[in-house]
């Protein structure tokens, strides 16, 4: 029997420009042995939740630089729950003010990472949080 692979959806919601950061993370997670479903730019929360469901992922990584995280992240969480995917771990990368970090953590976001966060930390956090479920 094959081992259980960690599957992560990496998405870039919102309207802001490029997805370089998201791509770097996607590659780092691949190099850590994970299967990364990469959906590209300008994803709506609905698109993200739908892809997370079809792909039966363990975690969702969102990269948001536009400042719209307080609009986008709660909506993604809500849709994941509505779909019955309340166990899916959500990770967020971007420039997030401290007070928003607290609010989002209360909402159930597992990890929040500012620019320059070591990718190894993100990898470890995803591994540990997913392993805690098994």
């Amino acid at each position: 029997m094959a081992e259980k692979k960690i599957r992560v959806l990496v998405a870039k919601p919102g309207l802001d420009g490029h997805d370089r950061g998201a791509k770097v993370i996607a590659r780092a997670l691949r190099d850590a042995g994970m299967e990364v479903i990469y959906t590209g730019l300008r994803q709506t929360p609905e698109m993200i939740a739908e892809a997370a469901l079809q792909e039966d992922v363990d975690a969702v990584g969102l990269s948001i630089l536009s400042g719209a995280h307080m609009a986008l992240v709660p909506r993604v969480m809500e849709l994941l729950r509505a779909n019955g995917q309340d166990k899916v771990k959500v990770f967020l990368g971007g420039i997030i003010p401290d007070e928003d970090v607290i609010t989002l953590q209360k909402l159930g976001v597992t990890g929040i990472y500012g620019p320059g966060s070591p990718t190894q930390k993100i990898i470890d956090d995803i591994r540990n949080s997913v392993a805690a479920l098994a």
Partner: peptide, 15 residues
Amino acid sequence: GAVLGDRIRMRELSG
């Protein structure tokens, strides 16, 4: 590991 990127071209199918 793997990066699975085919969905990028299929965004019109969502919803």
